[in-house]
Design a protein around this nucleic acid. Structure first.
Length: 428
RNA sequence: GGAGGGAUGGCAGAGUGGUCGAAUGCACCGGUCUUGAAAACCGGCAACGGUUUAUCCCGUUCUAGGGUUCAAAUCCCUAUCCCUCCGCCA
């Protein structure tokens, strides 16, 4: 959520900045609502003030043992008037709030302005794609031939966009997760965290999945007026970030760095026909998530840090990648600036997203009421929250299988993973 | 699942339907004292919103949502969470 002050005082500029990400703000409507709110709120509070004053004088008169019936008569229909105004105001505030909750974050000045992914800007590139002297296969052909990837059985048991992994490929998937988790906890200072895979509605509102993107989630109950029960997490960002919801943390505890390896669940509504082949887009996949809770002054630096932590995984696996800064039109709802890391996939002859690292600034913190107590003035202030994938395990598995394939269909195990594979150097 | 007990400021913890936004302690901030620190003493210290150049002032908030009342932290109902005991259980 944006600072409500923007909606009151800097509506035009806010609308302009949101327009760069393709969000059209109805300025006239908001201005009208805001003016109405102001007069209604003042009127309501005046009524309340006079009622409070009269009630107080009744109390004082009673304490003196005086007759209060004449004062009581004054109150008359004040209560009814007040109730009516209150109800009107509540409805108006509700209206304004739901607009505010549906507005995306303001892009940071350093995010390039653009319409879609074609306007994203490459900031660096690492490694050189290997030149194969045979025709490369994709991970699906390789995995199925090795008996490690079984899409057919997953369809039978559950449905499309699920996978069953077996044997050394399943172990490789596990090794990747362990490797990443160990790297971030021992080298990068993150605290390993075990989190629930089911979260409540408040948490989803806090990180911004709700109210707008409920259809992307799996819910344990159909949505009703009473809510939608618990939902499966689409990313560990949700439980990790909500850790600080309704908290005031001490400034000296910043930055808080947390990581978790979890399964993630996405309904992928609206992506029918996209990436249907293989492991790229699944309803269920593993991901190592990096979350930082940062002081506002240091969050942009923290974003660079998180991105480099994710890149380090690819460097150690010796997988070529490029890092893109997303343009305003391609950024996620709550982000002010996002770096995507794209890994080289030889079978597709292209770079594909494997990590997304974002600085949400105070957007989530405001929704969550996540604050720190400032040393300078001893007052609570909103935190900044950041998150990044470090990395998506399923897609990393794809990258390893494809980049490390041999002509005979076997897969060389990357050096860095061998300790996690019992020393195994070749799958085949 | 059954039976009880709770939820109050950053934390702990008082609170009779009527100057209760809420005693007290701790923590924190400022000051006196000190070479410096500690201790002691003095003072300050909730959040959010509205109005305002600012001070002031006003409103809301004692888990949440309803209700009773001129007036609710306090009484009633519902929900959530926590604790204790019993049952079940990886």
């Amino acid at each position: 959520m944006l600072d409500p002050k923007f909606l009151r005082n800097e509506l035009e500029i806010t609308a302009e900045r949101l327009a760069t990400r393709g969000f059209i703000l109805d300025v006239d409507n908001l201005t009208k609502l805001e003016e109405k709110r102001k007069s209604l709120q003042v009127a309501t509070e005046d009524l309340q003030a006079s009622r409070n004053a009269i009630s107080k004088s009744i109390g004082q008169a009673k304490a003196r043992g005086e007759d209060t019936s004449s004062i009581m008569a004054q109150v008359g229909d004040l209560g009814a008037q007040l109730d009516a105004k209150k109800a009107e105001l509540a409805e108006l505030l509700q209206q304004i709030n739901s607009i505010a909750m549906s507005m995306p974050n303001l892009p940071d000045e350093s995010a390039p302005v653009g319409a879609d992914e074609n306007d994203n800007v490459e900031v660096r590139r690492w490694g050189t794609p290997k030149v194969f002297d045979f025709e490369v296969k994709d991970h699906l052909d390789l995995g199925e031939a090795l008996g490690g990837l079984d899409f057919k059985s997953a369809v039978k048991i559950t449905g499309s966009r699920f996978i069953i992994m077996r044997g050394q490929i399943a172990r490789l998937n596990r090794a990747l997760g362990q490797f990443m988790l160990d790297l971030h906890t021992t080298e990068h200072g993150y605290t390993e965290t075990y989190v629930p895979l089911l979260v409540n509605e408040e948490s989803l509102l806090g990180t911004g999945q709700l109210p707008k993107f409920g259809e992307d989630l799996f819910h344990t109950k159909p949505a009703t007026e009473e809510g939608q029960g618990l939902s499966l997490i689409p990313t560990a960002e949700v439980p990790l970030t909500n850790y600080v919801r309704d908290m005031i943390v001490d400034e000296t505890e910043l930055p808080m760095k947390m990581t978790a390896l979890t399964s993630c669940f996405r309904s992928e509504a609206g992506s029918y026909g996209r990436d249907t082949r293989g492991l790229i887009r699944q309803h269920q996949f593993d991901k190592v998530e990096l979350v930082q809770i940062a002081h506002p002054d240091h969050s942009m630096q923290a974003l660079e840090e998180i991105t480099s932590h994710a890149e380090k995984v690819l460097q150690l696996l010796n997988l070529p990648y490029r890092t893109m800064v997303l343009c305003t039109g391609d950024m996620g709802f709550g982000s002010s600036k996002t770096f995507d890391i794209e890994v080289w996939l030889p079978a597709q002859n292209t770079y594909r997203e494997i990590s997304s690292c974002s600085n949400m600034k105070d957007f989530q913190a405001r929704r969550m009421q996540a604050r720190y107590r400032s040393k300078a003035d001893n007052k609570p202030a909103l935190l900044h929250t950041l998150n990044g994938s470090g990395l998506a395990v399923g897609r990393t598995l794809v990258a390893v299988i494809e980049n490390y394939q041999n002509q005979d269909g076997t897969i060389t195990v990357p050096e860095a993973l061998r300790p996690y594979m019992g020393g195994l150097s070749l799958i085949g």
